[in-house]
């Protein structure tokens, strides 16, 4: 089991989460050339080592997270909310 320290819920097993995929992808603007869209949708770095990826805590707070994880060892390096501003927004609304 991979233990992911969710910034909202604490440490949980990875079976509470849904794996999103490569978190380093920046989707191009709608009017950008089709080749940019091709690369963003179909091409992958497929890193053997530490990569940034998205996970969603579906059986918890349902937040999307950015996780730095080593794909060779499954070790988690860091976990942060995918929206860096989310904590401010939540505190303002509470």
């Amino acid at each position: 089991m991979i233990i992911i320290k969710c910034p909202f819920c604490g440490s949980r097993g990875h079976n509470e989460f849904k794996y999103g995929g490569d978190g380093s992808i920046k989707y191009p603007d709608l009017h950008d050339p089709i080749t940019d869209w091709h690369d963003a949708v179909f091409q992958r770095k497929n890193i053997a080592g530490i990569q940034t990826e998205t996970w969603q805590h579906i059986h918890g707070c349902r937040m999307w997270l950015l996780v730095d994880r080593d794909t060779l060892t499954h070790k988690i390096i860091s976990v942060r909310p995918a929206n860096p501003n989310i904590i401010n927004i939540l505190e303002k609304n509470s």
């Binding site: 089991m1 991979i2 990875h14 079976n15 794996y19 995929g21 794909t71 060779l72 499954h74």
Partner: peptide
């Protein structure tokens, strides 16, 4: 296993 990996080891779920 649903998540990307180069480790030749499986996971319990």
């Amino acid at each position: 296993d649903w998540y990307k990996s180069y480790a030749q080891k499986g996971n319990l779920p």
